[in-house]
C-alpha cells in the first residue's frame, strides 16, 4: 500500500511516548528510588550512631528483624496475588505459644513442628474462607485473626510460657559461623521466596492472578488454588517466624506479634509492591525490611521515646505509597 515495506506488519512495540527521556527518568526513580532512600537512611544512621556499621550491630539488627522479614516474604506473595493477610500476627502468636507450651511438657522439636503445622492449618482456613466462601480478604483475615488469637489465649489461659531448655532456645539463639541462625533462616526464606516468585510457574501465576484475575481464569488458571496457596504460604511462614521469635526470647505468649501484621505490610509497601496486586518483588521487600530495621536501630540507639519510631514509620509508609502513586501518574501521562 502506501507503506514501502513488503510484508504488512501492524504497528507493534511500546506505544509512542511523548517524551521518552522524561518517562525513563520517572521509571528509574520508580524502580531505584527505594535504594536511594535506603542509602540515605543508612548514612543518617552512621552519623547519629557511630556503631551502626559495626559487624556486631548489623548481625544484631538482622537477627532481631528475622521474624518480621520471614513474615514479610509471605505477605509479599499474598499482596502480589491480589490479597491481604491481617492474621499473620495472630498466627505468629499461635505458633510461638503452642511451641512453648508443648516444649514445657514434651520435647521442643515436637513444639516447633506443631506450631508450624498450626500455621499451615490457619493459612488453609484463610484460603478456604477467601476463595471458597468469597469473603473479602481484608474482612476474612481480620476475623480469623481475632479467632486465632482468642483460641490461643483460651488454651494458654493468657499465660506466657517461659522455656529455658537449650533444645528450645537453639532455634533462635545458636550461631553458625558467627551468624545467628535466625538471620541464616531469613536469608534462606528470602532466597526461596525469590525463586518461587521469579523462577517458578506458581510464582508467574500469582503475578497473573493478581494482575488480572478474570484474564487468568479464562486462560484456564485455577485462580482459587493460586490465591489460596498464597495464604497457606503466608500462614506457614508466620508460624515459622513465631517459633523462631519464641525461641529467641525463650518465651511463647498469646500477645506476641501484635504489630506483626501492620509492620509486615509496611515492609512490603515501603518496598514498593503495589497493594493492587500483580506487581512487586522480593528484593523490594528486602529493601523495605532493611529500611524499617535501620530506623528501628537508630531510634533504639538514640534511646528516645519509642513513640517517635511509630510516628516516623507511619510517615514513611504513607510517603512511600504517595510517591509511588505520583510516579505511576507521571508514567501514564
Amino acid at each position: 500500500m502506501t507503506n514501502g515495506t513488503s510484508t504488512e506488519t501492524i504497528p507493534v512495540g511500546p506505544t509512542p511516548a511523548a517524551d521518552e527521556r522524561r518517562l525513563d527518568a520517572v521509571r528509574v526513580a520508580q524502580n531505584y528510588g527505594i535504594y536511594a532512600v535506603l542509602v540515605v537512611i543508612v548514612i543518617v544512621a552512621t552519623i547519629v550512631y557511630s556503631g551502626f556499621l559495626s559487624p556486631d550491630n548489623i548481625k544484631l539488627v538482622l537477627s532481631q528483624n528475622a521474624p518480621l522479614g520471614i513474615v514479610a516474604v509471605g505477605m509479599t506473595l499474598v499482596i502480589i496475588g491480589g490479597g491481604f493477610d491481617l492474621s499473620v500476627g495472630a498466627i505468629f502468636a499461635v505458633s510461638g505459644t503452642a511451641a512453648a507450651m508443648i516444649a514445657t511438657h514434651h520435647g521442643a522439636a515436637e513444639g516447633f513442628v506443631v506450631g508450624v503445622a498450626l500455621g499451615l492449618v490457619c493459612g488453609l482456613i484463610n484460603a478456604i474462607v477467601i476463595t471458597r466462601f468469597r469473603v473479602n480478604p481484608f474482612v476474612a483475615t481480620l476475623g480469623s485473626s481475632s479467632l486465632f488469637s482468642g483460641v490461643i489465649m483460651l488454651i494458654s489461659n493468657s499465660n506466657p510460657f517461659f522455656v529455658e531448655k537449650t533444645s528450645f532456645t537453639w532455634l533462635g539463639q545458636t550461631k553458625l559461623l558467627g551468624v545467628q541462625l535466625p538471620t541464616i533462616l531469613l536469608g534462606i526464606v528470602f532466597l526461596l521466596g525469590w525463586l518461587v516468585l521469579n523462577r517458578s510457574v506458581y510464582g508467574r501465576r500469582v503475578l497473573a492472578v493478581g494482575g488480572n484475575p478474570e484474564a487468568s481464569r479464562l486462560a484456564g488458571v485455577r485462580t482459587d488454588l493460586v490465591q489460596g496457596g498464597t495464604y497457606v504460604i503466608s500462614g506457614l511462614l508466620a508460624a515459622f517466624a513465631g517459633a523462631i521469635s519464641a525461641s529467641q526470647l525463650s518465651v511463647g505468649q498469646g500477645t506476641a506479634g501484635g504489630t506483626m501484621a501492620l509492620q509486615s505490610i509496611a515492609v512490603v509497601v515501603i518496598g514498593g509492591t503495589s497493594l493492587l496486586g500483580g506487581e512487586g518483588s522480593m528484593t523490594r521487600t528486602a529493601v523495605g525490611l532493611l529500611i524499617l530495621a535501620t530506623l528501628d536501630n537508630i531510634f533504639f540507639s538514640l534511646a528516645v521515646d519509642t513513640n517517635w519510631q511509630l510516628i516516623s514509620q507511619g510517615i514513611i509508609v504513607i510517603g512511600a505509597v504517595a510517591l509511588d502513586q505520583l510516579f505511576r501518574r507521571m508514567r501514564t501521562k
Binding site: V201, G203, R205, G278
Partner: peptide
C-alpha cells in the same frame, strides 16, 4: 473476547503462555 484478557503487568511472552507456562518441575 472483545474486552481483551491480557495481564497488563506481565511480559508479552508471559501472556501468550499464561496458564500453560513452559517449565520443568515447577521452574519456569
Amino acid at each position: 473476547y472483545q474486552e481483551l484478557t491480557i495481564v497488563p503487568l506481565l511480559s508479552a511472552a508471559a501472556n501468550v503462555f499464561l496458564g500453560e507456562e513452559l517449565g520443568h518441575g515447577g521452574a519456569i
